[in-house]
Simulated scan of single mutants.
Amino acid sequence: MTNREPTPVVPRPQVPHRDLLQLEVLTDETQLRADITRLRLERNAVILAHNYQRPEVQQIADFVGDSLGLSRQAATTDADVIVFAGVHFMAETAAILNPGKTVLLPDLRAGCSLADTLTAQGIRDWKARHPGGLVVTYVNTTADVKAESDYCVTSGNAVQVVESLPPGVPVLFAPDRFLAAHVIRVTGRQMDVWDGACHVHEAIRPEDVQGQQAAHPDAELLIHPECGCSSRILNAIPDLQLYSTEGMIHRARASAAQEFIVVTETGMVTRLQRDVPGKTFIPVSRAACCEYMKMITLENIRDSLLTLQPRVTVPDAIREQALKPIERMLAIG
């Protein structure tokens, strides 16, 4: 038998108590909130957050809303700096409406799978085949696409905008095919439809809805028209109403129901819980989560206010053309 040195005793690291770890996280978040509050005042900044943002981001925002509401806020703000807690096309829209202001997107990686399905050249090609036609594009598009469009719309006013168009004129509705199907169903207006979709909404299946209905039989459905499940669900429930995110707020307040199945991106549950307290909101699927929306954090909001970067700008030639369909949208409703 050989002699060997005794194995040294390595002291185990001391792990802070769970309550202390939670306290550290809360302290960090408290400091971030304090930094954001101070910088927001120093910069004369406004923070606009989309309904799909993280709960803590929605909590520190000056305004939380859908694309139409955010566009209206961006158009009327007297702030010098606009921090957009959303995705790139939203910050571009704010820059189009506010050429003299600093528009910040805290993480430039925050893009949009739906916006990526449509190009300005695609619209130009359609217009070449349909002289005199009108192009209606969802606000979820890039600035150069808006510059080629006649009208912008959101899910909240798409029906109203299409109903205002002169009859007999060819219309392209782009890029969301599910929203287009909803508009055609409501208005009866036949349109050419671009074959695009949001990857999160497209992935929501009728089976997801049916599973939650089985688990919550008394719950009312709140379905967004971008959802891939909407057409099949409507075939089963013909009189079912679809709602924009703001429409969901209004419906939840007015309804006698106490439970709702929220069929859109999971962040909308946060907004509903805040604005309609006392009722229960069930996400249709925890997987219905937009990774682009969740790229905005308290940390990068604080950093963007500190450095005034990353900044989103739109070239003047594009901005002037893109402003026209946005203004038409805002004028209609």
Rank of each mutant, 00 (worst) to 15 (best):
L48E: 12
E327P: 00
G267N: 03
G86T: 06
R4C: 02
Q212A: 04
L234H: 14
H216P: 03
I282F: 09
T187C: 11
D19Y: 01
A203L: 00
S149V: 05
D275W: 00
L70G: 08
Q190Y: 01
S164Y: 05
D239P: 00
V162L: 08
Q58Y: 06
E207F: 02
A75L: 08
A317P: 00
R33M: 13
E299S: 13
V83R: 03
I204G: 08
L21G: 00
C289T: 09
P277G: 11
A75R: 10
A143N: 04
S244N: 10
L104D: 09
D192C: 08
I60G: 08
A74Q: 04
Q58N: 13
I326A: 08
S304Y: 06
L305N: 06
G156N: 10
V159A: 09
T77Q: 08
Q190H: 15
G100Y: 02
T119M: 05
D208L: 02
P175E: 12
L48P: 02
I326D: 11
V312R: 04
L23S: 14
A49F: 02
D208T: 02
Q22G: 01
D195Y: 03
A34E: 15
Q121V: 08
A74P: 03
T137K: 03
L114N: 11
A128W: 01
V57D: 07
Q14T: 13
R319E: 12
K294T: 07
R18S: 13
G247L: 04
L97C: 10
V103G: 07
P13W: 05
Y292H: 15
L330V: 07
G333T: 11
V83M: 03
R274W: 04
V139H: 01
N300D: 05
A34Y: 00
W126A: 11
V262M: 05
D275S: 12
Q14G: 03
S231R: 13
L114T: 08
E24Y: 07
T37V: 03
H50Y: 11
Q58T: 05
D28Q: 14
T37D: 15
V209H: 06
F173Q: 03
F173I: 02
R232S: 15
L221A: 14
D62A: 10
F173W: 02
D125R: 14
N235E: 15
I301A: 09
E29S: 06
R251F: 14
T187I: 09
T280M: 04
L298N: 05
I326W: 06
R12S: 14
P99F: 11
H50L: 08
S255E: 11
T76A: 15
G211T: 12
P315Y: 12
D176C: 09
C152T: 07
P13T: 10
S304L: 04
I123Q: 07
R4L: 12
G278C: 06
A120C: 08
N3I: 11
M268L: 15
P55W: 04
V262S: 10
T142F: 10
G111N: 13
I332P: 02
L108S: 15
A322V: 11
L272Q: 06
L97R: 09
C289Y: 14
T245M: 06
E24D: 12
A215V: 01
Q241F: 00
F89M: 08
A215Y: 04
A331R: 14
T102I: 14
I233G: 06
G132V: 02
P131G: 12
